[in-house]
């Protein structure tokens, strides 16, 4: 087993905003071990979400490498990156990002549906549905399977998003401000879900600007001015 599940080395990222060049990440390096619960914090515009997107292969760095289980994902082809996003990482977004046309059950099953061909779906449908029901049960959504996202509360929507992220049992869960759109009590409930998952062995990297929430993680990485604070 590799020592690190994911490791970023010398990651640089620029954005163009009008005529200005924003150097968001200026050689960031970090590593996360399997089973860790890591929080990335920093002020608004510090590059924490950009770093998370690069770790999840939603974006490519301009320079540097990102090794997932000792393989550099920046060298992956588009097809391999799709597979990586589908089965190696699971995303939880601040605004849930559920598909409004699908039910709770279908939203949870989405990663499995994306990776299944028509025949594969017919063959594995029962197993996939059973897994989705199991996750919904664990997340307290058993009675909500047939509901549409607009019929759910914010906390329930975020739990559906967590269920979707875990559908294919990815080794790494990436959460971008998972409580940022929730009230304190509901946000706390979501954090408890994440802690429970982590206790069960799930590796989690969470981005948050709230230091109290970050303190719930095992380790906190602070980003400032595109660099990781000294001593981390």
């Amino acid at each position: 087993m590799s020592k690190y599940i994911i490791r970023a080395t010398g990651v640089h990222k620029h954005y163009r905003m009008g005529s200005a060049d924003l150097h968001v990440l200026k050689g960031v390096g970090m590593a996360v071990k399997p089973g860790e619960f890591v929080a990335i914090t920093g002020a608004s515009g510090s590059g924490k979400s950009t770093l998370l997107h690069i770790l999840g292969a939603l974006d490519r760095p301009d320079k540097g490498s990102v090794e997932f289980q000792e393989t550099d994902i920046t060298k992956y082809s588009w097809a391999r990156l799709n597979k990586y996003r589908n089965s190696q990482v699971g995303f939880v977004f601040q605004f849930y990002h559920l598909l409004p046309e699908l039910t709770v059950e279908e939203n949870i099953m989405l990663p499995a549906m994306i990776s299944s061909s028509m025949l594969g779906w017919i063959k594995n449908r029962k197993t996939i549905k059973a897994r989705a029901k199991d996750l919904a049960d664990q997340l307290g959504l058993k009675e909500r399977l047939a509901h549409k996202p607009h019929q759910l509360s914010g906390g329930e929507r975020q739990r559906v998003a967590i269920g979707r992220a875990l559908m294919k049992s990815p080794p790494l869960l990436l959460a971008d401000e998972p409580t940022g759109n929730l009230d304190s009590a509901t946000g706390n409930g979501i954090l408890e879900v994440l802690e429970t998952l982590n206790r069960a062995g799930q590796t989690i990297i969470m981005v948050t600007h709230d230091l109290r929430i970050a303190d719930r993680a095992h380790r906190v990485i602070r980003l400032a001015d595109g660099l990781i604070g000294s001593g981390q």
Partner: peptide, 8 residues
């Protein structure tokens, strides 16, 4: 959303 979960 679909792309972030692996849709090509």
């Amino acid at each position: 959303i679909l792309k972030s979960f692996g849709a090509s």
